[in-house]
Computed example of a mutant assay.
Amino acid sequence: MLRYLPFLLVLALWIYAFIDCLNTPEEEVKGLPKVVWVIIILLFGEVLVGPVAWLVVGKVRRAPGGGATPGERRRDPRGTWTAPDDNPAFLASLKQGNSKDEALLKDWEEDLRRREEEIKRREQGGAADDTPPKS
């Protein structure tokens, strides 16, 4: 079984490189046209030259988060990802939401104060009525 392992690894690398090349958009292919890369992978797949060449130099590689690798500029500025705490639009929406919540809280506090004063007036008025008249 172990004697087949190198063959299976070569086959797996060849298939991965071939499918990766086919699925890569044309604008991300470096050096040669995509069709030429497919031919190189197919012709030199048995000796690993084609798949390894594709994986090393044939494609623009991105950092795991979708950003550009060091020393490389991203072509599509709309595709860049920004953390929420660095995104000005997100921070502005938080401030707007906070101002709405603060206004609502002020309204609730005013309503609560008004109701408490009403209750106090009723208690004071009721307590004055309940006291017996002095003779």
Score class of each variant (00 low, 15 high):
D20P: 03
Y16E: 10
P77F: 07
G67L: 05
W37H: 05
R122C: 06
A92T: 08
A68P: 08
I39A: 14
R62W: 08
I40C: 10
W37E: 01
F44L: 12
V29F: 01
I15S: 11
L48S: 08
V49A: 12
G97C: 09
L13T: 12
E102G: 01
P84A: 03
R74M: 11
A68M: 00
V36M: 06
R75A: 14
T131W: 06
L55V: 03
A89I: 10
R62F: 14
L11G: 08
G50M: 00
Y16Q: 02
L42A: 15
I39H: 07
L5Q: 09
V57P: 01
S99T: 12
N23G: 06
W14L: 05
W81P: 01
E26F: 11
I41T: 04
V57N: 07
G50W: 00
R61F: 04
E102H: 08
G126N: 13
A53Q: 00
L94I: 15
L55C: 10
P88W: 00
K34L: 05
S99K: 13
G79T: 04
A92P: 01
W37S: 10
V47W: 05
I40L: 15
A127P: 02
P84T: 02
V36R: 05
I15H: 07
L5H: 06
V56P: 01
L42S: 12
K106Q: 09
P84E: 06
R113G: 03
